[in-house]
């Protein structure tokens, strides 16, 4: 099968890919190389044992940061890895459609005989692929470094935890893609994607601390990423399915919106599904102009 848009997008992003992989690897090296000295330091252990409750928010409720799992979680999986992958996925997915439109090249691209559905899917797949390669670069470096400092950690669990982070990042990215597909507005796509990521992280973390918020935790997509300590217990199929399902739904919404998108018309929003639900009609390609 020929995938001209997919392969072109990946090629255009080869520098981006290279530097993110390098950056990710350097980040992992710098963090993991501290591990041996940290392990020997009792001071930190004591400090963490007396740490106030709110500190847990930044280590994902994990007070132990000296065991291999605790260390990996606190350094990467609770915040930094998903955060970096959010930045990557939001950047790629907001550029995939809204960026193309903002640069004015969408007219030419869509004058070629390629359907909007196919363009969207190839662009999305390229974004997912690039995010996946950077995740894999993280995993590879982390495993190598763990071996180098004799940190005992399961390869499979590490892969599962990394895949888990990749999934939540792809979900947030696909949300950005949808905003871009509906509005053609790159800034809005980045902003709303970031807000989704931040809000769901805060809701999940605060839910852990504040008991009155606890019932709301499950409303946050981040809950399905973070609540199960994947590095210790492995990926929970139910949670992974929620993330995958969320990605699928957002992808369908993106296709629906992009189908009705008025290319290059600022301030117009394409939400055909919403329109159908409201009017009960089955007309497609309805776009509202402001």
């Amino acid at each position: 099968m020929r995938l001209p848009v997919f392969s072109r997008t990946v090629r255009d992003r080869r520098r981006f890919l290279f530097w993110w992989c390098v950056g990710m690897a350097l980040f992992v090296v710098s963090q993991v190389s501290f591990y041996p000295s940290l392990k020997q330091s009792d001071a930190l252990r004591q400090y963490m044992e007396q740490a106030p409750e709110w500190m847990k928010m930044f280590t994902g409720g994990e007070v132990d940061i000296v065991s291999p799992v605790g260390y990996m979680n606190s350094q990467f999986f609770y915040l930094m890895l998903p955060l970096l992958l959010f930045i990557i996925a939001i950047g790629l997915c907001s550029d995939a459609l809204a960026g193309e439109e903002a640069r004015g090249t969408m007219d030419l691209l869509l004058s070629a005989p390629i359907s909007r559905r196919r363009l969207l899917l190839e662009r999305w797949a390229a974004s997912a692929f690039l995010t996946g390669v950077i995740s894999a670069a993280f995993l590879a470096t982390a495993l190598l470094m763990a071996a180098a400092v004799r940190m005992e950690i399961g390869y499979v669990k590490m892969a599962e935890a990394t895949f888990n982070a990749f999934l939540i990042a792809l979900l947030v990215g696909t949300f950005s893609l949808w905003v871009g597909a509906a509005t053609g507005n790159r800034g809005l796509s980045i902003a709303l994607g970031s807000i989704l990521a931040l809000a769901s992280y805060l809701l999940d973390s605060l839910g852990l601390m504040v008991s009155s918020l606890a019932p709301w935790r499950k409303m946050s997509v981040y809950y399905y990423y973070s609540s199960n300590n994947v590095l210790a217990r492995g990926l929970k199929p139910g949670h992974a399915l929620v993330l995958l399902g969320g990605i699928a739904v957002l992808l369908l919404l993106s296709l629906d919106s992009f189908q009705g998108r008025e290319i290059g018309v600022r301030g117009s929003t394409s939400l055909p599904l919403l329109h159908r639900l409201r009017t009960g009609s089955s007309a497609s390609g309805v776009t509202r102009n402001r």
Partner: peptide
């Protein structure tokens, strides 16, 4: 549209190209 575009050549009025290519 896809069938139409396969048999059509189009030059946009406000032409933007891929600057980095």
């Amino acid at each position: 549209s896809v069938k139409i575009r396969a048999r059509t050549g189009y030059l946009p009025g406000e032409l933007s190209l891929y600057d980095r290519m």
